[in-house]
Design a protein around this nucleic acid. Structure first.
Lengths: 185, 185
DNA sequence: ACCGCAAAGCTAATACTGTTAGCCAAATAA
DNA sequence: TTATTTGGCTAACAGTATTAGCTTTGCGGT
């Protein structure tokens, strides 16, 4: 029996693809796609939970990259708008990976913690232009994350009616600008 | 063998309790708590999915009730503030039931659709005082739902650091007021 | 070139989950 | 009292994750 040439990375990639295609992310499904039996996967990942964790960490890093690239060279309203659209776009294009992004970082996983930090830092940097520091910056970051996540999450769940989502999102961003302009320091 | 005296309502209640206690909502766990074997549950609910559906519909109705009670007799800023705090409170006190609230209503379930409508209507009524109609009202409703859901979802996931959540939420509400005051009609 | 060994696949077995079929006793209706 | 419906049960099956243990591949060292 020839080897399939798997690796941790290969398994995680396949799981990510499967997740983003909306399939049920099960070891059985992943193994089938890789042309391998289920227990063979355990030679590369420690189990279902560990696999989820790997996907989550990679997703957080990728999201941080996307947001960082979107906001580079921009400030204030420009930066917020760019980040918002990039965030929504990545989340809707990668719903499976995005969903893993939300779970709290497990406290003993340094890589996961670092990835979470990176994503938040991009938002904090963008808000820097508004002169927010300390508690005000924390509040504003939480507000921004909550708003963006809430929109894409409700969208993904189909909780909104279908039409005019882009218009609603644009209005939302405009509203965020107003909010941030008047944010107390 | 004496009967356990179950009913659809009793099964759903137990599942709701289990969900809000953070347990894994599994037929096995529910049956154990009710002192009954798993297949017996099928005499009262049509299966795992159907049970989820029942919980979801009841949860949407309860949330609509809570928001409705909170906003009665209030308008504009008052109404928004009351709804926001009631929403967050109910969601954090009933995390399991709240989570079921987010799934899109299944199109052929009239009760579920009606429940979803009720909850949205409360928000729409509250925004009525701002003179929003048509597209503007839709945008504002989506914004409000997204913001509230985003905050409680990230909170529930532990995605925020622990401290000062009430302060951040209060700031968020204040920001929403500003946003709504300047919302274009 | 050969051996040895770690890595990578496999089968088999266990323990969960949900689900269906079919039995039997208990409550209820005639 | 008898007939029927109802609500519990056991048994069986399918799907999932996981572990144990076996075999073979393929690479590194001699």
């Amino acid at each position: 029996m020839p080897r399939a040439g798997l690796s941790e990375g290969r398994v995680v990639e396949e799981a990510e693809q499967l997740a983003d295609e909306g399939g049920v992310v099960t070891l059985a499904a992943i193994a089938a796609r890789l042309g391998v039996r289920v227990p063979s996967l355990y030679k590369h990942v420690a189990g279902s939970d560990a696999l989820q964790q790997l996907i989550a960490t990679r997703a957080k890093n990728e999201l941080a990259d996307v947001l960082g690239r979107a906001s580079v060279g921009r400030a204030r309203a420009d930066a917020v708008e760019a980040i918002a659209w990039a965030y929504r776009r990545w989340a809707t294009e990668h719903p499976g990976r995005y969903a893993t992004t939300l779970r709290a970082p497990v406290p003993d996983d340094a890589a996961d913690l670092a990835a979470s930090e990176r994503a938040i830092q991009v938002v904090l940097d963008a808000l820097n232009g508004y002169g927010l520091t300390g508690a005000a910056a924390i509040d504003a970051t939480r507000m921004l994350r909550a708003t963006l996540h809430g929109f894409v999450a409700l969208d993904a769940a189909g909780a909104f009616g279908l039409p005019d989502l882009d218009r609603s999102f644009a209005r939302l961003i405009a509203g965020l600008q107003v909010m941030l302009e008047s944010w107390p320091t």
